[in-house]
Lab assay of single mutants.
Amino acid sequence: SEFQINEQVLASWSDSRFYPAKVTAVNKDGTYTVKFYDGVVQTVKHIHVKA
């Protein structure tokens, strides 16, 4: 599913667990740039983002 900029989502971290994050960019290659609550910004594949 498509997510929008500033949408609150759950994004997987390197430990494969999902954490609350905010979408900061929707990228043309189908990835999302997300910002976790601790301030870390990461680009993740769409399969690693869920509502």
Rank of each mutant, 00 (worst) to 15 (best):
R17V: 13
G30R: 04
K22E: 10
H46S: 15
N27R: 02
V41P: 04
V44G: 03
F36S: 02
V49E: 03
K28P: 11
P20C: 08
Q8R: 07
S14H: 14
K28C: 10
T33E: 10
D29S: 01
T33K: 06
D29V: 00
N27H: 11
I47N: 13
V41C: 07
V44H: 02
I47C: 14
S14Q: 13
T24H: 05
F3P: 04
G30C: 06
T24W: 04
K28N: 10
V9L: 01
V34D: 00
V49M: 12
V34F: 03
S12Q: 15
K45T: 11
R17Y: 11
V40S: 15
K22H: 11
Y19V: 09
F18I: 03
V23S: 01
L10A: 02
D29A: 00
Q8E: 13
D29M: 03
K45F: 10
V26F: 07
V44F: 04
A11Q: 02
R17M: 14
F3C: 05
K35P: 00
I5L: 10
T24S: 05
K50P: 07
D15G: 15
V34G: 01
F18W: 15
V26D: 05
S1K: 14
V40K: 13
Y37L: 08
V44L: 10
Q42G: 11
V26Q: 06
V9P: 02
K50T: 09
I47V: 10
T31R: 02
Q42F: 11
T43F: 07
G39S: 06
A25H: 10
I47H: 15
V41A: 05
K45V: 08
I47T: 15
Y19E: 06
V41F: 09
L10V: 06
T31H: 01
G30M: 06
V40A: 13
E7K: 03
Y19P: 01
Q4N: 09
Y19C: 12
A25Q: 09
Y37F: 13
V40Y: 09
G39C: 07
V44P: 01
K50W: 12
F18H: 05
Q4W: 06
A11P: 02
G30I: 00
